[in-house]
Structure formats: structure tokens, C-alpha cells
Amino acid sequence: MTSTRRRAGWLPLALFVVAAAWPMIAEMSGNPFWTVLASRMLIFAIAAISLDLILGYGAMVSFGQAGAVGIGAYSVGIAASHGLNEGLIVLPLAVLASGLFSLVTGFVAVRTRGVYFIMITLAFGQMIYFTATSLSAYGGDDGLTVWSRSTIFGSGILEDERVFYAFVLILLAAVWVLARLLVASPFGKVITAARQNEARVESLGFDIFAHRLAIYTISGAIAGLAGGLLANHAEFVSPAYMNWQRSGELIVMVVLGGMGTLFGPIAGALAYLGLEHVLAGFWQHWRIILGPLLILVVLRAPGGLGSFIKTRRT
């Protein structure tokens, strides 16, 4: 365990150094759009971290995370359509809206376990999706253009792709650090303990429902931040962000990157979107490669991916 930690110690640092230098690399190699692509990857990395908090630490397989991302995106989009653009207002608004959504749906979902939880989160995610498609005042099916990126103290610096990238990178680093503190906190211990044996943890005086609801809400709030950034990145919001396949992709990022590690999901998000970008560039039907690949990985992992990760971590 200690050796894994030590090894994992320099890896995030190295990645953040490369990430910090990325816009320069992109420009020197004559591919400035790499910065744009990388911003998108980092945003999804934030979403993946949010999912890892509940999936990796709480063993709650949520299939509705894209819904929380989408609410964050629509918060920014809808605020912008009413002329509210200040990032220091709309981004917290996105976080709040998604957190609130998770809190309310969590009251029903978090009470359930296993397959019920999967299906219910899936259903709530779809509810948001269909709601967005029927919001005719905000573009409905076609989505909503965000005419300008959020301002920071009234200045439009985020319009510059490099500044926007740096902004996202800083937020990702902050989210990562906070998430690490959270899982190492007394609160986080209860979450990881409850996954191992609920009856024991209850018998120690912990209200498991309250703890799970809290982490589910926090997770949703972070996903909302990712959504708010995504709306800024694409300068467009659309129901497609909330499609359940998006939730599935987030699960893939988290699980293949290494769930319950917080750093793994970041790597998973970068790898998945990188692969998507490369494959999609070659062939429009790239999913026909990805699908079987995913099936094979799952079938080949001895005793399931869960145990694969367990043995690696202990």
C-alpha cells in the first residue's frame, strides 16, 4: 500500500506539470486547438472525480451523473440567456443547482441499493434529459447557444482559450485536492467503512443514509461545476450533455482509470476523450471498436473489475 502511494505521489505532480505546459506545447507544435481539446478533457476529469466520490468510495453506481453535469451547464446557459454572465455568480449557481437536484433526488435514490440505485439514478438522469428537450424557451431539443463566456469580475479574459484552459486546470487541481481531503476526513472514513459493512457502521452510531446523501449531494455539486465549465467551453448547452450514454461514458472513465483513487478517473477521462478524438478522426463508426473493447476488458478482468481494483489497492 505504501509503495503504491509513493509511486502515485509523483505521478499526479508530473501530470499537472505537463498539463500546465500544455498550451505552450500546443502552440509550439502549431496545433493551438490542442488547448481547446485539453480544456474539454480537464472538464470531464472534474466530472469523473465527482463520480468517483460516490462510485469508487461509496460503491454507489450512479447512472445519472450526466444529469447533474447537464443541470450545471443549463444553469450557466439559462443565466446567460437572461444576461447574467458573471462567472463568480453563475458558476456557484451551477454548483448549487446541481447539488440541490442531487439532494432532492438523493432522498429517494440513496435509500435504495444495488440495481434499484442504478435504475433510479438512470431514471432521474433521463428525467432531466427529457425536461431539457421540452424546455422550448431555452432551445428545447436544439440546445441553447451561450453567446459569451462567463466573465471574471466583469472581464472577458476567459474568451482567450489559454486563459480558459488555465482556469479549468486550476479548478481541477482544487477539486482534486479537496476530494482527497474529503475522502481522508472522518466523514470519508464513514463512507468507505459503510461500503464494507453497513450493519457494523450503523452499530457504531453512524447514520449511513445521512452520510451517503451528503456525499451524493457533494458529488452532484462538483458535477455541476463541470457542467458550468462545459457550457462555457462549448459556448453552447444541449440536452445531449445529459443523455444517459454520457453517464455511461463517465462510468467507463472512472472504472477503467481506477475507481476509488481520484487520480485514476482523471487519467481515465484524458485517455477516453483522447481515444475518442483519435478514433473518431479516423472513422465515424469508432464506437464499434470501443464497444467490444469494453466488453473484453470486463470479461477478461478475473473475478470482475471490482476485485481487480481491490487487489491492486491493498
Binding site: 474529503l182 476526513s185 466523514f187 464494507q196 457502521v201 452520510h211
Partner: peptide, 28 residues
């Protein structure tokens, strides 16, 4: 019903935590 992926120390520490720490502590 010990927590298999916690150390012996963590198993007992969390029992004390349940006794002492009634509100959520989100930071270490």
C-alpha cells in the same frame, strides 16, 4: 463484522469516532 479493508487500528479508531464525532467533519 470487522471492516476487512481497514487496518486493525482503523477499525477501532472509527468506533471511537462514532462515539465522539457527532457532526460531519469533511476535512481531516
Amino acid at each position: 463484522a470487522v471492516l476487512p479493508r481497514f487496518t486493525v487500528l482503523e477499525n477501532v479508531t472509527i468506533a471511537i469516532q462514532g462515539l465522539e464525532c457527532r457532526r460531519f467533519r469533511f476535512l481531516p
